[in-house]
Computed example of a mutant assay.
Amino acid sequence: MKFVDEAVIKVQAGDGGNGCISFRREKFIPFGGPDGGDGGFGGSVWLVADEGLNTLIDFRHQRSFKAQRGQNGMGSQMYGKGGEDTMVRVPIGTVVTNVDTDEIIGDLTQHGQRLLVAQGGKGGLGNIHFKSSVNRAPRKSTPGTPGDVRELKLELKLLADVGLLGFPNAGKSTFIRAVSAATPRVADYPFTTLHPNLGVVSLGTDQSFVIADIPGLIEGAADGAGLGIQFLRHVSRTSLLLHLVDIAPIDGADPVEQVRAIEQELAKFDPELLERPRWLVLNKADVLPEDERQKVAEDIVARLGWTQPWFLVSAIARDNTMAVCQQVQRFFEAQREARRESADEMPANDVRLRGDA
Rank of each mutant, 00 (worst) to 15 (best):
R139D: 12
W306H: 04
S133Q: 13
D50T: 05
Q327P: 01
E345D: 15
P30S: 13
T86A: 12
L282W: 00
A315R: 02
S22V: 13
P196N: 03
F331R: 05
I105T: 12
R89W: 11
Q68G: 03
P347D: 10
I300C: 14
K66L: 06
A348H: 02
N349W: 15
T94Y: 06
D344A: 15
E292S: 15
I247D: 02
H61C: 00
L242C: 09
K10N: 11
V287K: 02
D213H: 08
I262R: 01
V313F: 07
K131T: 15
T205I: 11
K27H: 07
L244N: 07
R260A: 15
L241M: 12
S208G: 01
A297F: 02
E26M: 14
G305D: 11
S141L: 01
Q258G: 08
G40T: 09
L158F: 00
C325A: 10
D356Y: 14
E6L: 04
G126N: 10
G120S: 13
E155F: 00
N283K: 00
R237T: 06
F23P: 07
N127K: 11
V351M: 12
L156N: 01
R136H: 07
R318G: 09
A187Q: 12
R237S: 09
P30Q: 12
R89Y: 15
A338D: 08
K268I: 07
P215W: 04
G204P: 09
T109K: 14
F167K: 01
K284P: 02
E155N: 01
P289T: 05
G171Y: 04
E341Q: 15
L47P: 06
F23C: 13
V281F: 03
L125I: 11
A182L: 08
